[in-house]
């Protein structure tokens, strides 16, 4: 029964990683950049939800929407101010800028909300589910995290494969110049990608703090790095890869904590990443590009 309980916790934590990893992977796929500030957008989303419920007394669900709106705007603003001017710059310059934005957000949060951890109360109103005469307890947050992740994956899959903007995103991700020649605005497509990724980050932030209720300015940093790991693990640029990578990472982390060592669990996570990358450098579902002349 413990095994089942750990597995479900792993999938739940993995779902949150997957939602964050989607933001990394989509932005990478389209703008070919690693947005290391993505993890800190999670933190901003969590603070927004926290403020909305505690200061303004809003309904938790409304607070999530509020966090999504703020993060969407934040994502677009970051892209316009920090990354867009560097479109033609070497990728190293963009990477360093992204790290700069990450520290900027953390320090702005420190200034606004201080370093004192806030105790975040879960936005999920459901009680825990008790199964097998109470031997298996699954919290409402756990169930909602998995459920939300599945919905997001299905929705994104539809957007990317069926809608005009989704097709434009795939076209830009494959060949920027050719996409422009078809009439696609690359700048607009990148902005929309940042908007979607940041809105997802807000959702992830709220779910993360509902599961692990300590909120401080560095809250987003570690999950951000882990979700980035998940995205690479699954094959960066691949949406199903981000999903698979996130879930597996969550399971590995929880099993590592439960069966090996709580202190070593992060080390185990990254060790697995290194092994996967040695065996399969493109990640689990990394794209093999087929070129014919």
């Amino acid at each position: 029964m413990d095994f089942l309980s750990y597995l479900i916790s792993g999938i739940s934590l993995g779902s949150i990683y997957a939602i964050i990893a989607l933001g990394y992977t989509m932005v990478y796929g389209i703008a070919r950049m690693l947005n290391f500030a993505h993890g800190d957008v999670i933190m901003v989303g969590a603070y927004m939800s926290f403020m909305a419920t505690t200061r303004f007394g809003w309904h938790p669900l409304l607070s999530v929407l509020f966090a999504m709106v703020v993060c969407t705007v934040l994502g677009i603003v970051i892209e316009q101010l920090a990354y867009k001017p560097l479109r033609a710059a070497p990728s190293l310059a963009v990477l360093i800028t992204a790290i700069g934005v990450s520290y900027f957000l953390q320090n702005a949060a420190l200034l606004l909300w201080s370093a004192n951890p806030k105790s975040f109360s879960s936005v999920v109103p459901f009680d825990s589910l008790r199964l097998f005469n109470g031997r298996l307890i699954i919290s409402g947050t756990t169930i909602v995290s998995i459920f939300v992740c599945v919905i997001i994956i299905l929705a994104l899959n539809t957007i990317v494969n069926k809608t005009k903007i989704g097709k434009a995103m795939r076209a830009v991700s494959e060949d920027k110049d050719a996409a422009q020649l078809m009439g696609v605005s690359v700048n607009r497509t990148i902005s929309i990608t940042f908007a979607i990724g940041s809105a997802l980050a807000a959702v992830a932030g709220v779910l993360l703090c509902s599961a692990y209720p300590i909120l401080m300015p560095t809250t987003g940093a570690m999950p951000g790095i882990k979700a980035f790991t998940a995205a690479v693990f699954g094959g960066i640029g691949s949406i199903p890869g981000a999903f698979l990578g996130g879930i597996l990472l969550g399971i590995i982390e929880i099993f590592g904590k439960a069966y090996i060592s709580t202190q070593l669990s992060d080390a185990i996570v990254f060790a697995v990443l290194i092994i996967i990358l040695i065996v399969k450098p493109t990640g689990l579902l990394g794209k093999k590009v087929l070129v014919k002349v």
Binding site: A168, R170, E174, A178, A179, L181, V184, K287, V289
Partner: peptide
């Protein structure tokens, strides 16, 4: 363009749709 520059990971139909984007 030179070298055709098709979207190789999109279907034939989707490439044509992109043409009318």
């Amino acid at each position: 363009p030179e070298g055709r520059r098709l979207f190789l990971q999109m279907s034939v139909e989707e490439n044509l749709e992109m043409g009318a984007y």
